[in-house]
Computed example of a mutant assay.
Amino acid sequence: MPSRTQKLLAKVPGPLRPFVVQHRSLVKFLVVGGSCFLLTLVINYGLKLTVCQNKPVVALTIGTAVSTVFSYILNRQWSFRSEGSHKEALPFFVVSAIAVGVNDVPLWISRYVFDLHKPHVSNFTQEVSDFLSGMIIGTLVAMAFRYWAMKKFVFTNTRADSSADVESPARVH
């Protein structure tokens, strides 16, 4: 009976399968990141359109912080499949706190250095600028930092996916 991973891998186009198998922790990390991006987006705009209308950096920080907790659970249990105790929790949250700051910097620069906010620009320009600088640029830079830092400092004692979990790409049809 094929495992869930084998079933999913069978749906990946043939030319991509070797990459996915070789870099499975990166692929899993990106799936977790995509889920957390959506969670951050919902929380960020939920706050920004209600109680944090004049505080976009605060709204983004709260959204990112909440999704960080979700990210910890998924990355620990799935992306990096950490063994042992929760000893990586403290370094995870230290790295994540730095990453929240990294994520906020582009939004802060666009808003308060380049003055891309009302009344200096239209509401549309402000919102596009906020989205591009905070949700896109900030997220991409923070994601690259997180992936590097998680592998280097947090999930250093991870077990490799077993052969029972992932078969050779040539054997998956």
Rank of each mutant, 00 (worst) to 15 (best):
L74H: 08
L60E: 11
S168W: 09
G33A: 01
V154E: 11
T5Q: 05
T61A: 12
K151E: 15
I73F: 15
A97Y: 03
R76T: 10
Q6Y: 00
V57A: 12
H86D: 10
R111V: 12
W78T: 05
W108F: 15
A59T: 00
L39K: 00
L47T: 01
V27K: 03
A149Q: 13
P2I: 06
F145I: 06
S96I: 06
S133N: 11
G33Q: 01
E127A: 02
V31I: 07
T158A: 14
K152L: 14
F93R: 05
V154N: 09
S96E: 07
V31L: 09
H120S: 11
I62W: 07
S79K: 08
E167I: 11
L9R: 00
T125F: 08
R81N: 14
S96K: 03
Q6H: 09
V121R: 06
L38R: 02
R159T: 14
V113R: 12
D161Y: 15
G134D: 03
W108V: 10
S122I: 11
I137H: 06
P13R: 00
L107S: 10
L49I: 02
G84K: 04
S25L: 02
G84C: 07
S82F: 08
L41H: 14
F114S: 12
F155L: 10
R24C: 02
T61C: 07
L30T: 06
N123Y: 14
L16W: 08
M135Q: 13
A89S: 15
P15I: 03
S85N: 13
G33L: 04
D130V: 12
K7H: 04
K118M: 12
K48Q: 11
T139H: 06
T156F: 09
K151S: 14
V172D: 09
F145E: 04
Q22R: 13
W148I: 14
A99E: 05
K87L: 13
